[in-house]
Design a protein around this nucleic acid. Structure first.
Lengths: 209, 209
DNA sequence: AAAAATTAATCAAACGTTTGTTTAATTCAA
DNA sequence: TTGAATTAAACAAACGTTTGATTAATTTTT
């Protein structure tokens, strides 16, 4: 069982699904693009659906470890924790932009019910952890009385939105064709600064710039 | 040419595409759900692709009129204009949640190139208008020196994110199954208040709460 | 160490379905 | 009665999947 080949198929699948969607991609397309025989996909993964599950399983849950650590961490202030979460999310999205497009599709479309519920479950768990941090900040009177759930929605929503479409991002930033915003370290920094600035202004009672 | 029937097919198509995606929905599914003969879809629209184009064309561009008006409007302050834009966006998303899921899919997946470019073009135009308002606010020293493009991304991204999945939204808010957040006037108000609060804190130099 | 047996990987071809679309016949309305 | 609306049936193409044969690699037996 060559894991090299399995991984290769998975990586090509992410590219293909990110561009054409899961239902819009055929196994024949995938096999051709990955330069393997059509039968190999089913040989390795069992079915197209199971390939998709393997794909999601491999890379989802990326924030679990970080949020678990933050929950027991007592040395960081609440705003430091939020900053850290923002950094990790931006890092993750920029290092795996195509995978996150596939993940967004799965949240958006509820075709494969169990996978859909699974992905949403992961996200809801993340939300609960971040909400707990914000609520603690509020109790400590470091944070304003904001809406914790929607504050997290703004963080993830902003990143999601910027990562939705390379074309949109490019045109929004008045860049030439050929420019890839997701490989531009400067743009990543720009997004980070914006998010932190906005969330600080939103959360902090004493926000000395 | 009964427009009633055409509209009926389009409305059922929005429901179906929002749930299963465009590629995930077959014309037979659509015909059955709309209770018409399979051939009627091609009779009225020519093809599945053209049905989709008609669907997008009918409802996209919903912000054009509002933004055009705001561009020439001199009686509103910049922050009032931003508030107005937030209100109109939230209104629109809450009145057409399923359509906006379909629209998001189209931005996310670039399967049908020309339609994809068209939708993104509309959005980029909206961005330019909002950016212009924010930049004027900055020049007038009413607004902080924020990132105008990403500020707009945060507004749309927050709404988009909340509208992505009913299930996610429900679970995030700890609601029982059966609850529909998009029909809950209270939740709509909650989103509005959060967005305005956050954007005010972010933009305004003198933000007296 | 050589031969035999077993397992894993790969392939082209074919399977039965489902797909979007078209046809040709029929019903309906003006 | 004419043109539009509607239908069931049929179309080729594409779909995910399975098959049975073949090769390559590994393990077991002698």
């Amino acid at each position: 069982m060559s894991n090299d080949k399995k991984d290769h198929i998975l990586n090509v699948a992410i590219e293909l699904f990110a561009e054409k969607g899961f239902e819009g991609s055929s196994i024949r397309d995938l096999a051709a693009k990955a330069d393997v025989n059509v039968a190999m996909v089913n040989y390795y993964f069992g079915s197209k659906d199971k390939l998709f599950e393997a794909l999601i399983e491999q890379k989802a849950g990326f924030m679990r470890g970080i949020l678990d650590e933050l929950r027991t961490n007592t040395s960081l202030t609440e705003i430091q924790k939020i900053d850290h979460i923002i950094e990790k999310y931006v890092d993750r999205f920029f290092s795996q932009p195509l995978f996150h497009k596939v993940l967004q599709q799965e949240v958006l479309v509820s075709q494969r019910a169990s996978m859909h519920e699974h992905v949403i479950g992961l996200f809801v768990k993340n939300t609960e952890d971040v909400v707990a941090i914000i609520e603690k900040g509020i109790r400590k009177k470091i944070f304003r009385k904001v809406d914790p759930q929607l504050t997290f929605s703004s963080i993830v929503g902003t990143i999601n939105h910027v990562m939705m479409s390379k074309t949109m991002c490019m045109k929004m930033l008045n860049k030439d064709p050929g420019y890839d915003p997701y490989k531009d370290e400067h743009f990543k920094k720009r997004l980070l600064i914006h998010l932190k600035q906005m969330i600080h202004a939103h959360l902090l009672i004493n926000n000395d710039l």
